[in-house]
Amino acid sequence: MNRQILMGLGAIALIAVPFIGVPPYWLHIMIVILIWSFAYTGWSVMGRFGLVSLGHGAFMGIGAYGTALLWNHAGMSPWLGIPIAMALAGLFALLVGYPCFKYRIVGHYFALVTLALSEIVRQVIVATRDHTGGSLGYTPEPHGGEGYSIVALQFPEKTHFYLIALGVWMVGLIIWRAVDRSMSRYALEAISEDEDASASVGVEVTKEKLKITVLSAVMTAFAGAMYCQYQMFVSPDTVSGIGISLQIVFAVVAGGIYTRFGPTVGAIITIVLAEVLRINIAELEGLFGFKPAGLDNTIYGIMLVLFIIFLPKGVLGSIQGRLFGRSA
């Protein structure tokens, strides 16, 4: 009971955030954290079962570019465009997932096949530069007076977007919980332990894996579309490719791959860390007289390695493990 009250209070507090005069910069950071948390949660619903995909940049790219291209070229409102982009991502996941699972591509091999996927999508975006703007990036056309449009899902006011992102993030957590409580969870855990054994007791290995992969892909595509609608700018390097795929996996592992709030904690850690480093290093410029470009990412990289070596269960996973003595 306590837990539910606590969560309710937390939800109310989060909804109240934009109305108590939080500075726009902080609101922006929170929106970014919420959007990425949703993407990370989307990755973790399959990642926790040992299906380590390095290809989620592909789904994110399909979601972001699909929505923006349909809006700019076909005049299709994101209300329709986002579901179509999500369906495309799901189809793509099905197309690649089915042979992957059918032919038993697991472990390193699965990670590298999916890595190829995210590169394929990135290269296609760059290659079709006449339509997508290539490496220079792409902007959905603004619509309506002063950029505010419900049809085009464009909200220059941060409060609106904050509430949307918050809702989406909560839905992400609900999906995570639904997966956690479903029969599929037991099936997938059995599969990740031993595929042959679970197949022999009647688990439909390929089907279970496909279901979770498509769910994960669709969620990630939605996060990509959200990101595009919020930033009003996407480029191949910010929504697809190896960089993003690795970033997703990192954040989830840093936060905790097996717990519901792990991906969110991962998003908070990585985004706040990146911001703090970025701002402090901009200040160092006055001290040194030059800008130490790359210092923020250097520290970021070191911290990631340390995280992986010393906190393999992630921050939240380790804390919960200590507190409740359960092996999360």
Binding site: A111, V249, Y300, G301, V305, I308
Partner: peptide, 15 residues
């Protein structure tokens, strides 16, 4: 786990 190995060297990549 293989994923941790992959990620550790991925961190080195960023670094």
């Amino acid at each position: 786990a293989p994923i941790n190995q992959l990620l550790a060297t991925g961190g080195v990549l960023f670094f």
